[in-house]
Design a protein around this nucleic acid. Sequence first.
DNA 1: GGCCATTATGCAACGAGTTGCACAGCAACG
DNA 2: CGTTGCTGTGCAACTCGTTGCATAATGGCC
Lengths: 181, 181
Amino acid sequence: MALEHAILVSLLEQPGSGYELARRFERSIGRFWTATHQQIYRVLKRMESDGLVVAEEIGQDGRPDKRSFSATGPGKDVLAEWLRAPVQPEAVRHELAVKIRGAAFTDDAGRAALIGEVERYRAEHEALLLTYINGEKRDFLDLGGLDAGQQLQHVVLRGGIAYERMLLDWLDDVLRTLRAL
Amino acid sequence: MALEHAILVSLLEQPGSGYELARRFERSIGRFWTATHQQIYRVLKRMESDGLVVAEEIGQDGRPDKRSFSATGPGKDVLAEWLRAPVQPEAVRHELAVKIRGAAFTDDAGRAALIGEVERYRAEHEALLLTYINGEKRDFLDLGGLDAGQQLQHVVLRGGIAYERMLLDWLDDVLRTLRAL
DNA sequence: GGCCATTATGCAACGAGTTGCACAGCAACG
DNA sequence: CGTTGCTGTGCAACTCGTTGCATAATGGCC
């Protein structure tokens, strides 16, 4: 279970409520570790009872109270311990690769539909790459005055950018191959 | 649930027993869709009762009978339908990226341990890249006489190679960044 | 005035994936 | 001759993740 650890990292970077965490998982951290708000609330509750995080109740008129979480000392210890453990082999689930191999067993219409899907998928990832590049320009322009945390966020973002560029090149290769069949 | 579809693709490429499928998932297809033998047996059983695959009993003296599965007509139909459906957004789970961002909240010893882990991880993926490249040389040397299925397997393999190359470059970037902190 | 999106939290049920174990015989190594 | 490893199938328990729904108030749109 690494969702705990992703939450700890996110809360150390910036404390926040379950809802705020869920939004961050949609945008920033979630590019590398996805989670829905239901998962986050459930895990936060367990982490709170385990003493890894504490909540500060913030009253809001009208709306339900916001509970802003931050990582505790024991939370930091758990994270440090996890950082020392070996990286688990990843469970790769690349649906598109399976579909491409499956295209050998369908007809022309099916292959044409797949080409359309790949094009849509490509457009999505092109947009994502632009988001990354804009984020880089916005947050990491001044390479001089970055602290350790920012430098590490930047190198992870560079990874995302490299991945998206590689993916776009490969998708072009896929499209050429599918069209030539 | 796409494990069904990955199994259908694999069985269309080549019929085989549950055990054989499990080994293929370790080696070939499993680079893009992981599954353990228990999952495979369970899903195969359901697929059999749904009529997507049929088993041929092959008696073997001594050992338990082998049940060789192949995809049926309805199985092919289910696959074709799935190919036409939109690619689901992937649930990315990149543990290493989370650990790297977490490195901002640990001490020098913890960071040194992470560097060691990244180096180990890098060596693993370097070996994997070599496996891919050797597989490419072995199976796709003669680019002329490839049928559709082989061309599609090749483009997926090229994707794996591109991914591993990109990953190695990025890991070097990560190591430089961690060491410079 | 009614509808919908957003902020904010949470339960319940289901489906999928993981882990541990069991059985069974063969082949190869030392 | 015993141990280990490989082929081959499978159950049971558990954890994790997903989906659907519920509540509650605010603000904006038509």
